[in-house]
Design a protein around this nucleic acid. Structure first.
Lengths: 139, 139
DNA sequence: CGGAATCCTATCGGATACTG
DNA sequence: CAGTATCCGATAGGATTCCG
């Protein structure tokens, strides 16, 4: 916690906690940057809600729809496919009748839990600090 | 109270770490949910990179452009305005010539630091766990 | 230097309807 | 039950040009 650098010091000091290694020094939105990887994992509307449900345990397609009634089948399908492609969710089909599909988090998917917790914590802190300041216009 | 047609298990247990209070029980992308508030704060391409730069200390418009050369003035302006509207960034103008503007994080803005660190940590964990699995196609 | 004003395209996500 | 198939309006964000 040293002193501040002036606005035109030659080289800025990089915070090692914020930029631990090479991959954090990108000067553009590089997909290989860990921050981008994590952002991609939770990107897209409804994604964090779907993840939250799956964090509570495996879930069928219909159960997810029941818990998130305003989420259309199309978008849910898209989210689950993206999450599966990224290796965060596993799909298991029973070929019986009626067909049953179960979705569950993979070990990689469970890695997202601390991030979701931190998102919640940060959001709470912000709403406490910024009283009424632009939660964003309702969609 | 009638129960619903649940295909198995009665009520799911909500994880108190994941859903600490009422505001985490939304069944849709509610802007008042802390998770959404935090997501909104870091939403938009380039936003985390701009925040990273500002975390290192105050910065002028031109300095930000110099450090993020591929970021156009239009988008940078948009990001800074959004961050300012959300109370995360403060702008200070010198009306001299040439005009100098300095941007710095507010206390609320500094609240985002642990989130950025967590994003980095999570992304690193994912890339270690999912070897080569869909970092997403290059844009 | 520090922006604002346009234009243009790609993608996202909601609504709706249909299928195995 | 578990999806697929279209259509469509709304943004997001990049490129370019201009202004105080």
């Amino acid at each position: 916690m040293g002193h501040q650098t002036e606005t035109h010091g030659p080289a800025r000091r990089l915070d090692p906690e914020l930029v631990p290694d090479e991959r954090g020094r990108t000067s553009r939105p590089d997909p290989g940057c860990p921050v981008e990887i994590a952002l991609a994992a939770i990107s897209g509307r409804w994604t964090t809600l779907v993840l939250r449900e799956l964090m509570h345990g495996p879930c069928s397609f219909g159960e997810l729809r029941a818990r998130l009634p305003a989420l259309t089948a199309k978008v849910l399908t898209e989210r689950l496919r993206e999450l599966a492609e990224r290796g965060l969710v596993a799909r298991e089909r029973r070929e019986s009748f009626p067909p049953r599909t179960s979705y569950r988090l993979t070990p990689a998917g469970h890695e997202l839990r601390p991030l979701l917790v931190e998102l919640y914590r940060t959001g709470s802190a912000l709403s406490a600090l910024a009283p009424g300041a632009a939660p964003g216009p309702p969609r």
